[in-house]
């Protein structure tokens, strides 16, 4: 696997367009999913995906095979996306903070409010409606499978804050998905 990655990276560095397209085809779907869920915007995700592959093309000379190409690209994508979100957050900090502060806690329920199997499309739409801060923590933890320590390192927050952000996201999702039919969410 690692030898294949090194060979593909070598071909890309030498200007082999087919090799670079292979790299893109192999990884674009996973990275686009990550970027779209992290940003909540297809438009931003498209721009970021372009940037990631252009950056990757520039940086392939530094790829030494210490991790797989997939992991290397994933790290590029997460870092680039977080830079984007930090810039966006700093521009919108006041409004985002006030929106977060206005959220009322979800009422407690005595019985589960969600079906055991949540429709993918419903969940995708609900994730897109989460506030940026807790959405990033949720995507990295619950979708991408990072543990809270890793989420904390990626986002520059403590492990405890990661737990509370992920919990906050889940409670918001619970509210968004509560009794929602696919048609109702599509209309949002």
């Amino acid at each position: 696997m690692r030898a294949d990655d090194l060979e593909l990276a070598r071909r890309c560095r030498e200007g082999d367009a087919a090799a670079f397209e292979t790299l893109y085809r192999d990884h674009a779907g996973r990275l686009f999913g990550l970027l779209m869920r992290m940003t909540g915007s297809a438009h931003d995700a498209e721009d970021l995906l372009q940037d990631v592959f252009v950056q990757a093309h520039r940086k392939l000379a530094g790829f030494r095979g210490e991790s797989s190409l997939g992991t290397w690209l994933y790290r590029l994508a997460v870092n680039h996306c977080l830079d984007h979100l930090r810039g966006k957050h700093s521009r919108m900090a006041r409004s985002t903070d006030s929106l977060d502060a206005e959220d009322a806690p979800e009422p407690a329920a005595a019985a589960p409010v969600l079906p055991e199997a949540i429709a993918r499309i419903d969940l995708e739409r609900a994730i897109a409606q989460l506030p940026a801060g807790c959405r990033a923590a949720f995507v990295l933890h619950d979708v991408e499978g990072l543990d809270h320590r890793e989420v904390g390192e990626a986002l520059g927050i403590s492990e405890g804050t990661s737990k509370s952000q992920v919990h906050k996201a889940r409670m918001k999702l619970r509210g968004l998905l509560r009794g929602v039919t696919r048609g109702a969410l599509e209309a949002v």
């Binding site: 686009f32 999913g33 869920r37 498209e46 969600l114 199997a117 949540i118 993918r120 969940l123 619950d142």
Partner: peptide, 14 residues
Amino acid sequence: AIRGAARALTPIEP
């Protein structure tokens, strides 16, 4: 349920 659905999300083709 949320965790299970989140982990099952698949790549999205751009």
